[in-house]
Computed example of a mutant assay.
Amino acid sequence: MKDLTISRFRTARGRILRRQIEKLADHLGRPVSILDVGGRPDYWENVGHERISEIRLLNIDENEIDRHGLSNLFTSEIGDARDLKGYADKSVDLVHSNSVIEHVGAWPDMSAMASEMQRVGLSGWIQTPAWEFPIEPHFRLPFLHWLAPPMRRAALKLSKDYGALDVATRRYHIDRINLLSYSEVRALFPIGNIYVEKFVFSKSYSARWGPGAA
């Protein structure tokens, strides 16, 4: 049941992103080029490749470069979401990331990523899990992210995947994820609109801007 629910949300999210791409392509009068920060090719199977000219996959970890077999549609490069110095202002038709911004660091790091994405992207789609949802999506434990960091680290012992790790390693995994609330996402992305995915509680947010995002 859980997998079916996740699949339903992903399918619905993919349809909305697909509409944004189609409207952007109509606006530009040509296929769309996409910069996918932290992306992987298999993600786009749910969205579709129609009316897309290229998808550049930008990752900070060089091990990601050769991890995936790339079709002619995809290219892969090393880069840092917090400093997209290789890209001029509004040089990307659509800048995209899926569940990445909560991994880049503390607030200054997330703010830097948000500013860079809005700088380079004529249009944008930035998705992140909602802090308000009661189940932490990475560790799949209820209420974990609502606790103070030391309590989160202690509670992580309940996880079958992380419970056997030592204190320092569990704290590392806790500190590397910072979920965002609605008001924080709005503060990071003041332009455009925010698509709220709900399952009783808010489940995820997608900041959207530019042609096609209305």
Rank of each mutant, 00 (worst) to 15 (best):
V200Q: 07
R170T: 04
A187N: 05
E116D: 07
S159W: 13
V200I: 09
S202H: 14
S76K: 06
A25L: 08
Q118V: 01
R56T: 00
R176L: 05
K23A: 09
E54L: 08
V92L: 06
R186Q: 12
S71Q: 08
H173M: 13
W107K: 10
Y87L: 06
E62N: 12
V100G: 03
K198G: 07
F139E: 02
W209R: 12
E45N: 12
H49K: 14
S181Q: 08
L58M: 14
A130C: 09
S76A: 15
G163M: 04
F189L: 05
F189A: 04
G124E: 03
S71K: 08
E54A: 15
D42M: 12
L4N: 11
P211D: 11
R171F: 07
N98W: 13
A213T: 06
P149R: 09
G121R: 10
R56V: 00
S159Q: 03
S33H: 14
W125M: 00
F133I: 09
S71V: 04
L165W: 14
E132D: 09
V120M: 10
F133V: 08
L70C: 03
R51W: 06
I194A: 09
H103Q: 12
I21R: 04
D109E: 15
K2W: 09
D109S: 15
M117N: 01
G86R: 01
R30I: 06
G105R: 04
R170V: 05
V37T: 04
M151L: 15
R152I: 08
V100P: 01
F199N: 00
Y162R: 15
S33M: 05
P211C: 10
W146F: 14
S183Q: 14
H138G: 08
A12L: 01
G38W: 00
Y182L: 15
E102R: 14
F74S: 00
V47W: 00
L141D: 07
E64V: 00
L188V: 04
A12D: 00
V104H: 11
H103S: 07
T5A: 03
S91R: 10
S111F: 08
S115N: 10
V196D: 03
P211H: 12
Y182M: 10
Y87W: 11
R82A: 12
A154D: 11
T75N: 01
P137A: 01
W107Q: 06
S33T: 15
S7M: 04
R119S: 01
